[in-house]
Design a protein around this nucleic acid. Structure first.
Ligand SMILES: [Mn+2]
Ligand SMILES: [Mn+2]
Ligand SMILES: [Zn+2]
Ligand SMILES: [Zn+2]
Lengths: 136, 136
DNA sequence: TATCAATTTATAGCGATTACAAACTTGGAA
DNA sequence: TTCCAAGTTTGTAATCGCTATAAATTGATA
């Protein structure tokens, strides 16, 4: 049983029921959900939950380093609980996002043309295995 | 002097004054502008220009392969005139986007875990040379 | 130059996100 | 345990980037 209260405290985030539930959801469902997807899932058991709270909480968590915000799709931000580094593959047919565990040693650069690199975001696009198989 | 009319014709795009001006702007200013930035720049000399035209034109150009649409930032699409392949670095301090000419041979994979890879999008984030220098 | 399809414009509308202020929780002091 | 101030949540309105629509305009062709 993971102690989500402890995780929040360790990141200097004051506790609230909403924050615990949102963190729990992102830890349990690694589906790169949008703010709205999280809201729709949690409104079941928390009928008074406000969408503003979801947005505020995701912003706080991202700033404090618990989550990563992804801009894989145009026009919407998706979130994921920080785990081991990985890259993303988006299928242009079914729109699913796959985690790819492959790591690229060639991207380990800390410095490029004088710029200090803090984050690498690698987004691949193409046709996923499942869609290729069902093509014929 | 570049013949923008010829470029449009070669891509099967019927001519219009607006299309020529937008293409000219994107060719001359390689700053990865948003639709609104292009609109604000062109409204000076074309007071009747509609923002809808800018959006429509950028969509047409992207579909015809003259431009590339980038989702580097959250919540807004940026455009660039197609040139040689390169990757992008976003400074988290000044928000500028830099072109990085480095190519990664390690990303040349055509297939990953059964998925067919068609595009690679590599976005780096960090602190740019200019901001580092001015830090002290 | 006349025709007419394609393009542009102005306007309204939409989905994702943010701003704001009142009501409510939370954590700590008394 | 009770009380309080600070921080959080909520509901609403507003904003931002973008799209839909239909009337007005343009431009390719004859
Ligand atoms: Mn992931
Ligand atoms: Mn570029
Ligand atoms: Zn697929
Ligand atoms: Zn900078």
């Amino acid at each position: 049983m993971i102690d989500f209260k402890k995780i929040l405290k360790e990141h200097g985030i004051p506790l609230s029921l909403q924050r615990i539930k949102i963190l729990e959801y992102l830890h349990n469902f690694k589906t790169h959900p949008t703010a709205d997807m999280i809201y729709q899932a949690l409104i079941e058991e928390m009928p008074m939950l406000s969408k503003t709270t979801v947005y505020n909480t995701l912003k706080t968590f991202t700033e404090k380093g618990i989550l990563t915000a992804l801009s894989i799709f145009e026009n919407e931000v998706r979130y994921e609980y920080n785990t081991v580094p990985h890259i993303h593959f988006k299928c242009v047919k079914c729109n699913k996002i796959y985690d790819i565990s492959k790591t690229y040693d060639c991207l380990k650069n800390e410095e490029l043309e004088g710029h200090k690199v803090l984050e690498h975001h690698i987004n691949l696009k193409g046709i996923c295995k499942s869609c290729r198989d069902s093509e014929e």
